[in-house]
Amino acid sequence: MEVELEIIESIAEAQSYVDGKQIGLVPTLGGLHKGHQSLIEQANKENDVTVLSIFLNPMQFRQPQFLAYPSDFEQDKIVAHQTNVDMIFHPSVDEIFPNMKNFAKFQADEFKQRDSFVIEAQNNGIDNVVRVPANLVYHLDGKLHPWVFDGAATIVYKLFEILSPHRAYFGEKDIQQLAILKTMAKLYFPEIGVVAVPTLRDNDGLAFSSRNSLLSKPQRDAALKVHHALRHGEQLIKSGESDYNLVLDTIKALIAEEKSVKIDHLEILSDQDVILYIAFFVDGIRLIDSFVLTHTN
């Protein structure tokens, strides 16, 4: 039976819609692709009602990147309908942040030392800003862009308050964001399950991303060379190479052959799993990728 798609823009109407329902939430920035579809499909299987939030959060971007983000709400509605989403929550910036004055100043006000999550009652007109602990922020992408994760945590905190989902679904590609949101949910929303969904890749291996739509054929080929370099590093680790500096140097050398690519951040983390992570630019278009490897010893 075909699902009738509801599109709701106001917080009050969204809260009325979800009241009494078992909700699976898929939070997105928009620009839906097959990776998002895999999240929606899992939410459909595990919940009575699937809610897709589409909100381009200005707290997570510098202004030029915010304005350039590949959003197409009409196309997103088609994807949502095809994947049997029950409701799209599509609020305006003013609806979510009615008193926001200057998100760039929020980014500049980053506090560097926090041992635990902090909820700021107000920051530059933004209510209930979530500040993430330093130990979760200052590695991987957080070394260069720590405020991004405060922005992501803040909007997810708000979505959880508004929609009270039973489960929320996030992709493993954004591995650091996933770890932060899982920790935040356990602390503030223990009744909400945060579900990690494996990274979905195109036939050529490139991880699906909203920004892939911005890539020309030569730029996509360059991004694929980065993917292949990471695969080579993955194989080195799986074959027993324990000198991660050597692995990183090998990956960098392979990527250096592609002049249109600039590495923003490349790191290997080793905890319960080995995580190989990269953020990079192809002619100014920023992409990320990650591989989660089980320990080989």
Rank of each mutant, 00 (worst) to 15 (best):
E41Q: 14
G31D: 04
I54C: 09
E46N: 12
G35V: 07
T28L: 08
P58L: 00
G35D: 03
H36Y: 09
K34D: 15
H33Y: 04
N47Q: 05
N47S: 05
Q37A: 15
L39V: 12
L32Q: 12
L25C: 10
S38L: 07
L25Y: 10
D48K: 15
V51F: 05
V51Y: 00
Q37V: 15
S53H: 08
N44C: 10
N44L: 11
I23C: 06
A43C: 07
L29M: 15
E46V: 09
E41V: 13
G24I: 03
I54E: 02
A43P: 05
E46P: 01
N47W: 07
L39K: 14
Q42D: 12
L52M: 04
L29Y: 02
V51I: 14
S38Y: 02
V51M: 05
G31P: 02
Q37F: 07
V51N: 06
K34F: 06
K34T: 00
V49G: 08
I54H: 01
D48I: 07
S38K: 05
N47R: 10
D48S: 12
L32K: 13
S53P: 13
F55E: 06
E46Q: 15
L52W: 00
L52R: 01
G30E: 05
G30I: 04
N47L: 03
I40P: 04
G24N: 11
G30D: 09
E41F: 02
Q37N: 13
V26K: 00
S53K: 04
V49P: 00
G24E: 05
